[in-house]
Each structure stands twice: as structure tokens, then as C-alpha cells.
Design a protein around this nucleic acid. Structure first.
Length: 478
RNA sequence: UCCUCAGUAGCUCAGUUGGUUAGAGCAUCUGACUGUUAAUCAGAGGGUCACUGGUUCAAGUCCAGUCUGAGGAGCCA
């Protein structure tokens, strides 16, 4: 029976005086042969366990090494030392699992994030990753809470998909055909009729098209699942496997869509602020320490928690693509020829342009709407000007694009015309087009990259550090 | 995929114009000490200088290629 244990998060809030308290956790450090800093993952804070001199034999003490798993029974008392309100005087100590100190890679000191990535199976045991993953959990939970409270239905869209017409990037093929000798048809091409699903299949790059099927029946749905892109992207904000949240809403236009996205982002930030303040404070201090190393102009203008408060307290800036281009053309950066890439109406804005708008000009999240149709996907609703579509991207400081969405083209003729122009097969997407044939309605939706959201809230800078087991080109060890 | 930078002990790093036996702090091990907060003190062990090839009397150091990592760019969430 292990159920009598009390989590360290709870015991730290209790008043001294209790006897026979049972705790279990892992040793962070043993100081002075007398003080164990015990952590059980429920909080970043450690419980100080006091071993009175002579009470435990030398062999037991020798087994109290970094990361050894312990069961300790003891009495909770007011701490004599500084740094903690209460501490546990141990009466019984059992080593549940030894940890060979000479082989254990983590030390009670600061490790580089690069090194910790190489031991991703153990990095949860550090303060930084403990905080990041508790915050990540809260954000994920808040996603469901937000949509559930608003009557959205959680729809599980498929991981394996047959459609390759979504145009959202390179896909991972799913097959059971033998590599060395695949079946071939008369033309000598690989015959996917022989494959497991009887056709060529891939891992999903987006649940949106399926999401629209749900929205046109349930009204409002959301998806929250893994997404796969086989792009050879080597950046701090791309993963080959990442998690995306995609709400899709019938009877919503572009403005409704923006309103939902903004309140959604604020809601999940608020939830983390309400439930993970200890961890956010730790991350805030961590970030401040990191930034001391940077030159002054590279540092964030605000601390992490101040930044989150600022986002909660202020409306996102809303501008059209056309206004965005005008701001760029009118900017000192443009006039001083600081931009490497050309700025003119019709371009797909580069990172440097987005960063300027968000980090220099507005200094807060910006929603850019009504992009030129030629740089956006086929399913976005065409505006009356014939040039733009009802798209919206949310750009966040330090991250770039965190949300991409649009009002969808609900008019069948406009949609199929656009598909023809963009060489997208109507036959393959017959099921998608059926939503426009049978009771089509104005509707909208967006995708939010979950890891980018976690980056923003935790202040981490590399996306590989906010997902448990990052998959990136040439890397899938854990 | 492109550009730039890096790879020296378990970790973080130093290593001069190429020159004797490659160093430090932390960690580890041994011992001491005991109200510590990444405990402290003393001592010890620990290296295929990423890999392959080349230049040279001599390469951690110079050159070429490869691999891996980081940052930036593109693709995007």
C-alpha cells in the first residue's frame, strides 16, 4: 500500500505538529550527511528531510544518493533553518530504488539545455523541465476546459489520412508494403491497392478538413491531437511531430473567429497563472538569469510574468494585411534598408517583417487579417475585393505565428473554382465538398500550435524543450 | 535544404605564433566535519582532444571531407 503517502506539494502547505507522515520521492541532494532535499514531482519545491545524527546506520546513509527513490516516515516540525517553513524529522527511512551516483548524469548544478536534450529520459527530474511540463499539463487541461465550457465537442480526427490535397506540407507515408520489393502495377509504379488501406496513406498534417465535417453537424467542435510534418526544418520553433488545437465553428465569421482565438489564448494563460504560479516564478527567474548573458538589445523588455500579465490585460492589435504592409513601408527599418527581403503588397511576410510588427512596432500580439489570396490556402473565404481572403494569423512576440486561421469558403462554386486554379483534386475531396452541397453555412476556424503556446507561456526559447520527446530531423532517440 | 559558429575528462570550459608528460571548476571515489540550502575541507582516480584522411621533423592547434549539435533563414503551427 503506497496510498498513505502525502504529496510534497500538499505537505509544504501544512502546519507543523503532525506525526507519522509518509512521503515518497527522489533525492535531489544530501547535504551535510543530514539533510535530504526530497522531490516527488508534485511541485518544484523540495521537502527538507532531517536525519538526526546517529539515527541511521552508515550503509543506509551511503545509499542516499542523487535520484535514489526513498520512502520516509517522520514528524513534521517548524524548520530551524532558513529556506523552508517546515521540515520532516525522519523516523523511518526505506530506499525503494538505489541510484548509482558514479553513473547518474545529473548533478545538483546548472546543466545546459543541449546536454539535457541528450538525456531527455531524465530531464524531467530537473527544476526547469519539472516546471515546463507542469505548466504544459495545465495549458492542455485548460484547452479542454475552455471548449467544454463553451459547448464545443471534442472531435478525434484521424491520425492516418488518405488525402494528400491539404497542401500543408510534406507528409510521412504510412505503409506496410515491403521496401525492398513493393508490388507494382502495369506501368511499373508502386501499387498502393496492395497496401494495408488499399490506397496511399500518410500521417495527418491537419485535422481541419475533417473538423469542418464535425462543425457542420455539431455546430462547434475542436480537435487536439498530434500532427506530423516531414519538412526538413531545423529551427527553434518547428517539430516533425507536434500538437495542434483546431477549433471549427459553424455560424462564425472572421471577427467571431478572432474573438474566440483571443479569448482562448487569454483563458489558458490565466489558467496557468492561477494554478502554476510557483513554476512560472521559477521560469521567470530562470529567464532573467539567462538574459543576463545576452547583450542589452537582445533582452526581453519585460519579465515572463509581467509579459503574461500584459497580454492578459491588453487587447491584441488587429490590422489588415494591407495596413501591415503600409506600416512596414513607413517604418524606419524599411527606410534605413534594414530589411533583407523586399516589402510590397502581395509578398508573404518574412520573419523579419513579422518580428518588426510584433516586437518593435506594436510590442504585443497582433492579429493580421485579409491576406492576398495567392499566398493562402484554397479553402479560405474570398473577399469581395477579389484579391484577398478572410484569413487571420496571430503573431506573438518571440514566437512568430502562433495561430493561423480563416473564415472558410462556404460557397461551392467559389470553392471549386479556387481548387481548379490551385490544382487541387475535387474528386479526392468529394466528401469535403459535400458539406457545401448539403446545408452549407458560413463557418470559421483556426489552428494553434500547442508547443508554440507552451514556449510563449514558459519563456523557453527552443521548441524541443517544451515537448517531452521531440521529433526533429535526424533525432528520435527517446 | 542554405548560411554562420561549435565539438578537448561525466558536465561547463581554458589550452599562446604548431613544440616536452593536455589543465581548471563542478561531479565521482576515499577520508574528515556536522543545522545544511548547488554544504564545506583534504586527497585520489578520470582523456581515442567528434571521425577519416592530409601537410609537417612535430598537429588538440593548420588543410580537406564526413558526422553531430547550436543559432539564423526558408517551409509553417
Amino acid at each position: 500500500m503506497f496510498n498513505k503517502r502525502i504529496k510534497i506539494k500538499e505537505i509544504l502547505l501544512q502546519s507543523p505538529g503532525q506525526k507519522g507522515v509518509v512521503v515518497m520521492g527522489w533525492v535531489r541532494t544530501l547535504r551535510n550527511n543530514q539533510f535530504i532535499a526530497l522531490n516527488d514531482g508534485s511541485t518544484n519545491l523540495n521537502l527538507q528531510v532531517v536525519l538526526e545524527l546517529g539515527k541511521f546506520d552508515e550503509n543506509t546513509l551511503k545509499r542516499i544518493t542523487t535520484s535514489a527513490a526513498l520512502k520516509i516516515t517522520g514528524d513534521l516540525v517548524a524548520s530551524q533553518g532558513k529556506g523552508q517553513a517546515v521540515e520532516l524529522i525522519a523516523t523511518e527511512l526505506e530506499v525503494l530504488g538505489d541510484s548509482d551516483a558514479s553513473a547518474y548524469p545529473l548533478q545538483p548544478k546548472k546543466h545546459s539545455l543541449e546536454f539535457l536534450r541528450e538525456i531527455a529520459h531524465l530531464r524531467f527530474r530537473t527544476n526547469t523541465f519539472g516546471a515546463v511540463f507542469r505548466v504544459r499539463h495545465s495549458l492542455a487541461f485548460a484547452v479542454h476546459k475552455f471548449y467544454h465550457e463553451r459547448g464545443f465537442l471534442y472531435l478525434h480526427t484521424p491520425i492516418v489520412t488518405a488525402s494528400d490535397a491539404e497542401g500543408a506540407g510534406e507528409m510521412f507515408r504510412v505503409t506496410t508494403l515491403p521496401f525492398d520489393n513493393p508490388p507494382r502495377n502495369e506501368k511499373g509504379e508502386i501499387d498502393f491497392k496492395e497496401d494495408f488501406f488499399g490506397r496511399s496513406t500518410n500521417l495527418t498534417v491537419s485535422g481541419q478538413l475533417e473538423g469542418e465535417l464535425g462543425a457542420t453537424a455539431f455546430g462547434e467542435i475542436y480537435t487536439f491531437g498530434p500532427t506530423f510534418r516531414a519538412e526538413n526544418s531545423n529551427t527553434t520553433r518547428h517539430l516533425a511531430e507536434f500538437w495542434m488545437i483546431e477549433p471549427e465553428m459553424a455560424f462564425h465569421d472572421l471577427e467571431d473567429n478572432m474573438n474566440l482565438a483571443e479569448s482562448f489564448i487569454k483563458y489558458i494563460i490565466q489558467f496557468a497563472m492561477d494554478n502554476n504560479m510557483d513554476d512560472l516564478q521559477f521560469l521567470d527567474q530562470r529567464l532573467a538569469e539567462e538574459e543576463k548573458q545576452l547583450p542589452a538589445d537582445k533582452r526581453s523588455p519585460m519579465g515572463l510574468i509581467d509579459k503574461l500579465r500584459f497580454v492578459l490585460d491588453n487587447d491584441f492589435e488587429r490590422i489588415t494585411y494591407t495596413q501591415a504592409i503600409d506600416i512596414l513601408l513607413d517604418s524606419p527599418a524599411y527606410k534605413k534598408k534594414k530589411f533583407q527581403y523586399e516589402v510590397k503588397w502581395g509578398i508573404d511576410m518574412q520573419s523579419e517583417h513579422e518580428r518588426y510588427l510584433v516586437e518593435k512596432h506594436f510590442k504585443k500580439p497582433v492579429i493580421v487579417t485579409n491576406y492576398p489570396k495567392d499566398i493562402k490556402a484554397f479553402y479560405m473565404r474570398q473577399n469581395d475585393d477579389g484579391k484577398t481572403v478572410a484569413a487571420m494569423d496571430i503573431l506573438a512576440p518571440g514566437i512568430g505565428e502562433i495561430v493561423g486561421g480563416s473564415q472558410r469558403e462556404e460557397r461551392l462554386d467559389k470553392l471549386t473554382q479556387r481548387m481548379k486554379e490551385m490544382h487541387i483534386s475535387e474528386e479526392e475531396l468529394w466528401w469535403y465538398l459535400d458539406t457545401r452541397r448539403f446545408g452549407t453555412v458560413p463557418h470559421a476556424g483556426f489552428g494553434l500550435g500547442f508547443e508554440r503556446m507552451v514556449l510563449f507561456v514558459t519563456g523557453m526559447t527552443n521548441i524541443r524543450d517544451v515537448i517531452a520527446f521531440p521529433r526533429t530531423p535526424k533525432s528520435a532517440e527517446f
